[in-house]
């Protein structure tokens, strides 16, 4: 259970997130949509404690993220997987070391087990032979899949996907969405997905929230989205604009 309470974040005195309140029950999958620059990525970073908000609290399973000390937050973060918008692969490590990194940091498994798990992940994202390559030798779609593998390798119960299909061709996008779906159906994860690919996340998510210029315009289940009359939600959901250009 993730609860976001009255979160406000200021940037040079101007609010970029205004009084956001949301909750994500265990096992549910939230789709976060909205125009560029609405603060979606920022909200995600606040939820995992990477950015401290000016007001408000975030609790994950009853723990206040901003009250935890270094060791507790480390423990919490092992339970969260994050797929970053810009891949965020460590460019000074090869692919296998990148995927092994969270496991090594956790320090529970031996090197043999880690190697086996890394290979298992590489197989599951359909890139079994690229372990020795470096991130800058890979294409965008491959980097996204490696980044996905790194996010889910410690088998976290909570996963955040920050725009998993940005800038990818439709075939690669659909592969990524298949991976997300498998996470949901096989592992039963709680997830938040930011995406501009509405058709894609319709399949993945059961709840949707729409942010616009830092404000939460809409938050509800799939049925509620389909029946709402809010024009911005309709535009996003149906993928057209009835406003005049300008």
């Amino acid at each position: 259970m993730i609860e976001v309470h009255n979160v406000t974040k200021l940037h040079f005195g101007r609010p970029v997130l205004k009084d956001i309140t949301l909750s994500i029950p265990e096992g549910s999958n939230l789709g976060l949509i909205g125009p560029g620059g609405a603060g979606k990525s920022l909200l995600l970073k606040i939820i995992c404690g990477l950015v401290v908000p000016d007001e408000g609290t975030v609790t994950i399973d009853g723990q206040d993220v901003f009250e935890l000390d270094e060791i507790e937050i480390a423990k919490l973060r092992f339970r969260i997987g994050m797929l970053f918008q810009n891949y965020a692969l460590f460019d000074f490590m090869n692919v296998a070391d990148n995927i092994a990194f969270p496991l090594r940091q956790e320090g529970k498994l031996g090197e043999d087990e880690i190697a086996a798990k890394v290979q298992e992940q590489l197989d599951s994202v359909d890139l079994p032979t690229i372990g020795h390559q470096f991130p800058n030798e890979l294409s965008g779609g491959m980097k996204k899949r490696v980044s996905f593998a790194r996010a889910v390798v410690p088998e976290p119960p909570i996963v955040f996907y920050d725009d998993p299909t940005a800038g990818l061709d439709p075939v690669t996008s659909s592969k990524i969405f298949l991976l997300l779906k498998a996470m949901r159906d096989e592992k039963g994860v709680t997830s938040v997905t930011i995406s501009h690919d509405i058709e894609g996340i319709k399949d993945i998510c059961d709840n949707f929230a729409l942010l616009d210029r830092g404000e939460l315009i809409f938050w509800g289940s799939r049925d509620e989205v389909e029946s709402t009359d809010l024009s911005l939600v309709r535009q996003f959901w149906d993928g057209f604009s009835d406003d005049e250009l300008g």
Binding site: L50, A74, R77, F84, L89, Q105, R150
Partner: peptide
């Protein structure tokens, strides 16, 4: 950010 998410 990714480092921090991996508790490094």
């Amino acid at each position: 950010d990714a480092l921090r998410m991996c508790a490094a």
